[in-house]
């Protein structure tokens, strides 16, 4: 019985620690990004400023795979042609190091900061 109680206590501690680490990481200060890089299967498709509002149609062999919308210093995916639409659900991103991935179509939309270091730590 006693060891059962100990285990429950350890469980609570474990969960608290995991939550604390996770929440701490979520609120870690993030550096602002300034450039949006779009890649298809790893190949650079285009690089755009995060400060200029624009719609970037992402096309491959004449087919529209989706549209990257840059707006108010954020970027998000629209009209994705994939099935799951996980890329659209990712929503708006703006911090350096964040990305929107559309794995079925091989698209990656990356927000890049001042230098690559920001990109990795963000």
């Amino acid at each position: 019985m006693n060891s059962d109680k100990k285990r429950i206590f350890r469980d609570i501690v474990l969960i608290a620690v995991l939550l604390a680490v996770g929440i701490g990481l979520v609120f870690l200060p993030q550096s602002e990004g300034n450039t949006v890089e779009i890649r298809i299967d790893g190949e650079l498709y285009g690089s755009y400023s995060l400060r200029e509002e624009r719609h970037v149609p992402i096309e491959k062999d004449g087919t529209l795979l989706g549209t990257a919308v840059i707006e108010n210093g954020c970027v998000y995916m629209e009209n994705a042609a994939c099935k799951g639409k996980d890329c659209q659900k990712t929503g708006r991103i703006s911090s350096a190091g964040r990305c929107i991935l559309c794995l079925p179509q091989g698209i990656g939309i990356y927000v890049v900061g001042e230098n690559e270091l920001d990109g990795v730590t963000g």
Binding site: L19, V21, I23, G108, G119, G122
Partner: peptide, 11 residues
């Protein structure tokens, strides 16, 4: 870059 999702997925 995908590891930027790690905190949310951890929670």
């Amino acid at each position: 870059y995908v590891f930027s999702y790690a905190p949310v997925l951890l929670v």
